[in-house]
Amino acid sequence: MFKKQTLKVNMYGYLFLLPALIFLILFTYYPTLLSIHDSFYLKDNLRPEGAFVGLDNYKYLLQDDVFQKVLWNNLIFAIGTVPTSIMLAMFMAVKLNKVTRINQWMKTSYFYPTVIPLVAVANIWLFIYQPDFGLYTRFADFFGLPDIPWLQSELWVMPAMIILTIWKEAGFFMIFFLAGLQNIPNHIYESASMEGASNGYVFRKLTFPLLMPTTLFVFIIALTNSVKTVDHIFVMTEGGPNNASNLILYYIYQNRFTFGDIGIAATASVILIVVLLAISLINFFVLDRKIHY
């Protein structure tokens, strides 16, 4: 009787996992293996059957100026977007935590970019960065600031992307910090204010450390986003000028779909997967330990 019961429960377990597992196998595990497989082949539209070339694709990518630039760009993009948007988000959350009507409105104005598609955001910002009539140029002319060729210069295009991304994401991250703040028991603050601690002191010694788990969670999301969001590139720059705004995922798209180079796209995909796994490893082994202060 007991045995039968376990078996039944067992069966239910597999049965319930089955539907999700099928899709995970088809669209996460199998494609990952497929990428690894294809990365050892010279495979493009002309040679759809593929020819085994060992590590040639990896060698090619490591020597390719464009790919090196793309990796570098992605690093800059991450460094530019992640810390700034986290700090901004934390600032917003701390300032807007108290529920008042005006705070509610400000929360709305910070959060709304989250519900707008990135392609639409790119459209809006295209007109902000437009050099002759764009919003920035008008603003700069009014205040006597220098004109900046945002999307036209190799130097400025990355800052332009970074600003857009921060604008799009900070409000989203703010929500996590607001949630984090709600979890901090009120009495901690009460005792602090009884002791006459200054606001800065309270933030440094109480709020910031208590928000640490949230911060790390947001950090991982932001870092992952910095390698998986490329929609704006399609609308704004197509990776230019001279690949200064090209990121890994866009490079994969270009090679696979524009140039029809399946082998190179697979190889770049494998490298991207390795980057993502590395991010997760940071999460598991480095950061998870530090949370237990």
Binding site: Q152, S153, E154, L155, G240, P241, N242, N243, A244
Partner: peptide, 9 residues
């Protein structure tokens, strides 16, 4: 085109 970009910028 990429190298033209490099020249222009």
């Amino acid at each position: 085109s990429d190298e033209i970009d490099a020249v222009i910028t």
